[in-house]
Nucleic acid binder design. Sequence first.
DNA 1: ATGGTGGGTCTCCCA
Length: 256
Amino acid sequence: MKIATWNINSVRQRLSLLQDFLVKENPDILFLQELKCESEQWVLIESETPYNYYVHGQKSYNGVAILSKFKANEIVTNFPANPCFEQSRFIEITCNTDIGFCRFISLYAPNGGEVDSDKFKTKLQFYDALINYLEIIRAYDESLIIGGDFNIAPFDIDIHSSFKSSNTTCCTVEEKYKMRSILNMGFYDLYRLANPNTQEFSWWDYRAGAFEQNKGMRIDMLIASGRAAGYFQNSYIDYNMRAQHKPSDHAPVVAW
DNA sequence: ATGGTGGGTCTCCCA
């Protein structure tokens, strides 16, 4: 079983890179975020790949999808008490897979804007609602995998030292605690599980040569329940896709 | 404190 997550920052701008990535990695499941288009606008590649496409798109901003080699039984595009329900930030499917019944979620958490802004408060509320929802489905004791842009770097190792973590969105203590409480529920961060001590990032600002200087954060993650995590021993962040011409500002995260 | 780039509904908003 091979899975990947990628904030693609406009799927229409990235069709060729997406094709390259699918051919190179051939994942069974790909979680995508920030499609920045309606569901029907990128069906053009659908016939050329061996995937079922489960898309919760939106014009202009947001938009998430799951590309799956397994057919979905159920598809849901929201979770209870989500304060951003009008934005396409969540899609969940269930499938019968090679490793049994699985629940898969593609998540695009709010960025939060400036620390302490209204958007920031909404981000924290989004996490409170998400944590409540995960408490419920955790009790099912299923194989659950979330691939997402969480917009939080959970620990200091996940943040380049040039960021002032106390007042930079995605690395404040308040945000870290939200992410850690998900991990403390018994969900595993597959990259960190496979690479306990490596400092690598999944996002770098387009500006000021951030990628060239490796000034990034690790905010994109594959999170698995205990039942599912045992099927994954390896994980890496595909820096090569970030180094391509006209890249997304995020690199894909792969696990197998 | 500002500005840097690159998406989007494109001289403004969002990251």
